[in-house]
Design a protein around this nucleic acid. Structure first.
Lengths: 210, 210
DNA sequence: ATGTTCATACCGACCAGATGGTTTAAAAAT
DNA sequence: ATTTTTAAACCATCTGGTCGGTATGAACAT
């Protein structure tokens, strides 16, 4: 049964990520990971030289997927309309419908989990998280600058921090959702963000309540 | 050095809370806690029968302080004005000025940290967090109901989830602030929340940018 | 076809130190 | 006289990590 290293590596990472989202990084011992993954210690250390290396691999994969969502959903929004404000709202609406379908296994963000244990990680690991958040800020802020150029906002706002508000809502809503055991929180909060943008740029409100 | 158990107990809790905010609960071993606190193992277990009991004590104290902030800042806001909308904005403004002064040691929320390791805790511990968040929701939602009674909102909004938005912004902003190493994030995001409320209830914008 | 070589993939016993927790006897402070 | 604290030894279990060995299968030479 040799010769499928990629699949095994993926199994380890998937298992570890799920466990870490439940118990944190420190709380997810290698023994528990390999137990759940159905592999042995030798195999684990064949694929990852150390536990910090696993953390690095996980955070890099998470960041890659996260940035892919940013890009693909932004492109989809750009095909729906030419107006940057409506693009941003459409961008958020996609995440909202995605979150609206969630029910049982509560969502979690690897970044939040690692952030809450940040003292344990190497700089390179935390740097991936920081750079990913800054990429979001930059992409969204670009769109916001285009928006204010065509539609003057009804209140003075700083565009970088308004861009950050999206990340803030995601991270905060994940935590509140899990704490309250309420799967609807993320979708609801994304809806408030859309309402904020609508009000800010003077767009008539959606009929559904935020 | 006997007969001041309360002081020692407080030292243990303060040290543990600070450590947990850096490294998480699992990452904060009892050995490290007593090392930093300058006490011995015997003393620790004299005050706390087990590690889960320490978690419980910490979360209860945190909740108590948190609810005290809610009450005291709400009362202060109620003395500033009679209008519920302005009360809510004043309420948030107090937290904003508080957060605005922060510089070095980045903020953290024990609830967020515990939430990210929630699989490790007993139900009673998680229940304290849940009840605290629900108390916030209920108190803020009351105020929001009073607000919509006097001032009809410019967009249809669900009041419970709008109340939750405050908790969401706190939790999310803590995480983004720490990840980006940016002490201003929390204050900025609280400002956006105020702007949202102002726009929602048709109040002229503040001059400072959000 | 067949035996050999070789890198990849995997196993599981083993290790030293850390973990949460206990015990005991004695010393301080009130 | 009682509460609080210390110091140190002790325990079973868990921790991240190492190591020698094994199975696999494709490549290659024969």
């Amino acid at each position: 049964m040799a010769r499928n290293g990629d699949k095994t590596r993926k199994t380890i990472m998937d298992t570890a990520e799920a466990l870490i989202l439940e118990q944190g990084f420190s709380g997810s011992s290698i023994d528990r990971i390999i137990d759940r993954a159905g592999i042995t210690k030798g195999t684990f250390f064949y694929h990852f030289p150390s536990k910090p290396d696993l953390a690095q691999a996980l955070v890099e994969r998470f960041a890659r997927r996260d940035l892919h969502q940013l890009t693909s959903k932004m492109e989809a929004a750009e095909q729906q309309t030419d107006d940057p404000v409506h693009q941003l709202i459409a961008f958020l609406a996609q995440f909202e419908s995605l979150a609206d379908e969630w029910t049982a296994p509560y969502p979690g963000c690897l970044f939040a989990t690692f952030c809450c244990e940040s003292g344990l990680f190497e700089d390179r690991t935390l740097a991936v998280m920081r750079e990913t958040m800054l990429t979001w800020r930059s992409r969204i802020a670009d769109k916001l600058r285009a928006a204010v150029a065509t539609t003057p906002p009804r209140a003075p706002v700083d565009l970088d921090s308004l861009a950050d508000a999206i990340t803030v809502v995601f991270e905060g809503a994940f935590i509140v959702s899990r704490t309250l055991n309420d799967p609807k929180t993320v979708a609801q909060q994304l809806r408030h963000l859309q309402t904020y943008l609508r009000l800010l740029f003077g767009i008539e409100a959606d009929t559904r309540p935020a």
